[in-house]
């Protein structure tokens, strides 16, 4: 028999997690949470989440860093801001989800095989390199990265009808001043470190 602790001991909690999060943009008010659950009930994606938004708020306040950063929840946030406008204590919950995504990437804790973080990273890469995003190229790259050949084949009929109606560009879009954008991003990143 393999023994596994199903309860986390207090001394294993990460006591600095709350302060760490509060330092991030939009997360300043997080310890106001009263656990009312308005966020979870407003969320159209909460039924699919491993932890509902209310639980995530609790976990942040109580030092469950590992569980929070490994969770799928932030990646399932569709950024609809329903929770944020309804929160009775004005926590910017959607912004907290964004902060968690960035933190999970920085600490390499995100679910790395899940298609959503892969899509976000790839899209960010394409648009910072070229200045514009190209839907077709992004989808192709995503299918390759997730080795999802089945998904690609399933999408083919849609791709065809989009092409027929002139709604799919084969061209890789880009701005004129790509070089300036790339060096701007690099230099600002170094300058604000």
């Amino acid at each position: 028999m393999k023994f596994q602790e199903n309860v986390k001991f207090e001394e294993d909690l990460d006591k600095d997690f709350l302060e760490e999060i509060k330092d991030r943009s939009g997360c300043e008010e997080i310890d106001r949470c009263i656990q009312c659950g308005t966020c979870s009930s407003s969320c159209p994606m909460s039924v699919y989440m491993d932890y509902t938004p209310r639980k995530i708020m609790y976990m942040i306040k109580n030092g469950f860093k590992e569980e929070t950063l490994h969770s799928f929840t932030p990646w399932l946030c569709a950024s609809c801001y329903s929770c944020q406008v309804r929160c009775p204590v004005q926590i910017k919950i959607t912004d907290v989800m964004y902060a968690l995504k960035r933190m999970a990437i920085e600490e390499k804790a995100y679910p790395s095989r899940f298609s959503i973080p892969i899509m976000d990273k790839e899209m960010h890469k394409i648009l910072t390199e070229n200045g514009r995003s190209s839907e077709l190229w992004l989808m192709l790259k995503l299918y390759l990265k997730t080795r999802n050949l089945g998904g690609m084949i399933k999408m083919a009929p849609l791709g065809l009808s989009l092409m027929k109606t002139g709604r799919m560009g084969l061209k890789k879009e880009s701005i004129k001043n790509k070089k300036q954008l790339r060096s701007l991003l690099k230099s600002v990143k170094e300058g604000t470190k």
């Binding site: 990437i105 976000d120 200045g131 991003l185």
Partner: peptide, 21 residues
Amino acid sequence: DWNCCGATASLSVDETASATI
């Protein structure tokens, strides 16, 4: 010569880059 806004992707990956673009 406008550039892409980054939509929800850039904000999920890199805050400084998102604000910069």
